[in-house]
C-alpha cells in the first residue's frame, strides 16, 4: 500500500539503512559533478568582456544563493510534514537542514563581497540582495539557536517547525519590502546583470554548477541526517548492534592486533 511506504519514510532506521546503499554511488557522482562544474567555470569558461576574470565567482556564488533560499523551504516543508504526520525523521531532516542552509548563506555573502570589491569598489553595499541574504542568515540562525537551547528535544523540533513555517510566509514579504526600500533609496551603483543575456559558453558551466550544488546539498543533508539519527537513537537496540558490528569489523581489519 502507498501509505505503508509513506510511513516507513518516518522510520529513522529504515532511512539509515537505505541511505547507506545510496551513498555508495551518490557521493562519487556528486564529487565528479562538483569538480567538473567548478573547474569548467573557473578554468575554461571564456573571460567576461566587462568584468574580466572576477565574474568567475558567479559559478560559486549564484548556485549557493539559490540553494540557500531553496534550503529554507526544504527545511520548512520537512518541519510541516513532521508536525502534520507526527513522524520523527522529517524533524531530523529539518534540524540538519538549518546549519547547511546557514553555511550556504554565509558562503553566498562571502563570495558576494569578494565579487563586490572589484566591481563595486566595496566589500559591502546596502543592496537589496545583500540585505535579503543577511536577513536569511538571521532566519537560519534563529532556527539553529532555538534547536540548541530548548530543554526538550521533542519540543525543540515542534518549536523550530512552527518558526520555520512562519518564516516561509515572511521570506517573500521580506524580499518584497527590501526591494521596495531599495527602489526608494537606490544609490548610484553599477547594475550587475544589466540586461545583457548570458552567453551559452558561460551558461552551460553555470547550469552544471547548479546541478552539482543541488547534489552536494542533498549529500550534505543525507550525511547530517544520518548523524542526527545516530545521536538521537544512540540508546536503541539497532544502533547498539550497528556499533557492535562496526567495532568487530575494525577489529578484524586491524589484523587482530593485541
Amino acid at each position: 500500500m502507498a501509505w505503508q511506504w509513506f510511513h516507513r519514510l518516518g522510520s529513522p532506521r529504515w532511512f539509515y539503512e537505505k541511505s547507506s546503499r545510496w551513498l555508495v554511488w551518490f557521493a562519487p557522482l556528486t564529487l565528479v559533478l562538483m569538480v567538473v562544474g567548478i573547474s569548467w567555470g573557473l578554468g575554461f569558461a571564456p573571460i567576461d568582456s566587462k568584468q574580466g576574470n572576477s565574474y568567475r565567482i558567479i559559478f560559486i556564488h549564484m548556485p549557493a544563493a539559490a540553494l540557500a533560499l531553496a534550503g529554507y523551504y526544504i527545511m520548512a516543508i520537512a518541519g510541516a510534514v513532521g508536525l502534520i504526520w507526527k513522524m520523527k525523521l522529517p524533524f531530523m531532516v529539518m534540524k540538519s537542514a538549518a546549519p547547511i542552509g546557514a553555511a550556504l548563506t554565509v558562503l553566498t555573502l562571502a563570495t558576494g563581497s569578494l565579487w563586490g570589491h572589484p566591481t563595486w569598489g566595496t566589500f559591502w553595499e546596502w543592496d537589496a540582495r545583500n540585505i535579503f541574504m543577511l536577513v536569511l542568515l538571521f532566519l537560519y540562525a534563529g532556527i539553529v539557536v532555538l534547536a540548541e537551547v530548548y530543554p526538550s528535544r521533542d519540543a525543540a523540533d515542534k518549536a523550530c517547525a512552527i518558526l520555520a513555517l512562519v518564516g516561509t510566509i515572511n521570506v517573500p514579504i521580506i524580499y518584497k519590502s527590501v526591494d521596495w526600500w531599495y527602489s526608494l533609496h537606490q544609490p548610484a551603483s553599477i547594475k550587475l546583470t544589466g540586461g545583457s543575456s548570458i552567453h551559452p559558453s558561460m551558461l552551460y558551466p553555470l547550469l552544471l554548477c547548479i546541478l552539482a550544488y543541488y547534489c552536494f546539498y542533498t549529500l550534505a543533508l543525507i550525511l547530517y541526517t544520518r548523524r542526527e539519527i545516530l545521536v538521537r537513537e544512540s540508546r536503541t537496540k539497532w544502533v547498539a548492534e550497528l556499533a557492535q558490528a562496526k567495532f568487530s569489523q575494525s577489529q578484524n581489519a586491524s589484523g587482530g592486533a593485541p
Binding site: 536577513v135 538571521f138 532566519l139 540562525a141 534563529g142 539557536v145 532555538l146 537551547v149 518558526l163 512562519v166 518564516g167 515572511n170 514579504i173 521580506i174 518584497k176 519590502s177 527590501v178 521596495w180 526600500w181
Partner: peptide, 17 residues
C-alpha cells in the same frame, strides 16, 4: 537573546514599511 534573534528578521518588513 533568543527572542531578539528570532523576532528581528520578522520585524524587518514592518520597520521598512
Amino acid at each position: 537573546l533568543v527572542l531578539t534573534l528570532i523576532i528581528m528578521p520578522l520585524y524587518l518588513p514592518v520597520l521598512i514599511i
